[in-house]
Design a protein around this nucleic acid. Structure first.
Lengths: 133, 133
DNA sequence: TGCATAGTTGCATTATAGCGCAACTATGCA
DNA sequence: TGCATAGTTGCGCTATAATGCAACTATGCA
């Protein structure tokens, strides 16, 4: 009962993109499960773009995802064990231009809209929805 | 007195290649300073290829390099501090198909040829030297 | 002083990655 | 039952990265 072996290169590859690193950083700092629409309002990146980045992270073994009604939640995986050391590293990365801090603030505002700890509203940033051009 | 800021993405990008990860793993495990010709005999990869990978790692801030006569030595940088956590992570990565173990064994044999702790012989694997085709 | 060798790098080729667009699926609610 | 919306994905374009080849520099030694 274990997933397919993922090479360490794939792991680092997944983190070599700034958007994906922002996602992981947010998840590490909050220790939350987050759905896509909340992520859109936190990072202010297009929905389809984040959707694809989430897929890359999932395939690298960093994320677990599951569907609840219309919403798909994502959280960090806990195994294998060395991932804990990765998360420790991500946590201690510098936030030179305050991007991570801004993401976290936006996310906090979004989280305030949850009901009983669950997402109940869609994407607030209209211009970042998939069909918006 | 600090180097130019290197983004975390660049760091992970540097580790997203299997050959470069083998280099870093070897340096982490041995805590040694290694010159290119020794690395060629350890990883059994072409000299020009490793030379370029070393450059990528250097530009990502992971390596310090210096010249001694004909030889150029490389070792891991110690700062910024979060690099220590990165090295801890690299150390705990699994060695699924024993590639790292083989590299380490080959390197041990090469190290036995040093005199007074310094490299004195060139590349032993003739077919991996730059002009060998 | 010339040669062997440790190391670097430009060039061309190929493979891969990111992204915008738009079409698609799926789910809840009026 | 139909519509709005959360989310996914194929297509095409562009940018970047890995690599082999070969020419190049630099250093020590006969």
């Amino acid at each position: 009962m274990h997933s397919v072996a993922i090479t360490p290169e794939t792991l680092f590859q997944a983190l070599s993109d700034s958007t994906r690193l922002r996602i992981i950083r947010l998840l590490v700092m909050t220790d939350e499960e987050i759905c896509l629409c909340e992520l859109v309002d936190a990072l202010l990146e297009p929905q389809y773009n984040l959707s694809r980045h989430l897929k890359v992270l999932r395939q690298a073994g960093l994320l677990t995802s599951w569907k609840e009604g219309r919403w798909v939640y994502h959280r960090l995986t806990k195994h294998p064990d060395y991932l804990q050391q990765l998360y420790t590293l991500v946590r201690s990365l510098p936030d030179t231009d305050n991007v991570y801090r801004t993401d976290l603030r936006n996310f906090s505002h979004r989280m305030a809209l949850r009901e009983n700890g669950r997402c109940r509203v869609g994407i607030l940033s209209n211009d970042l929805k998939t069909g918006s051009e």
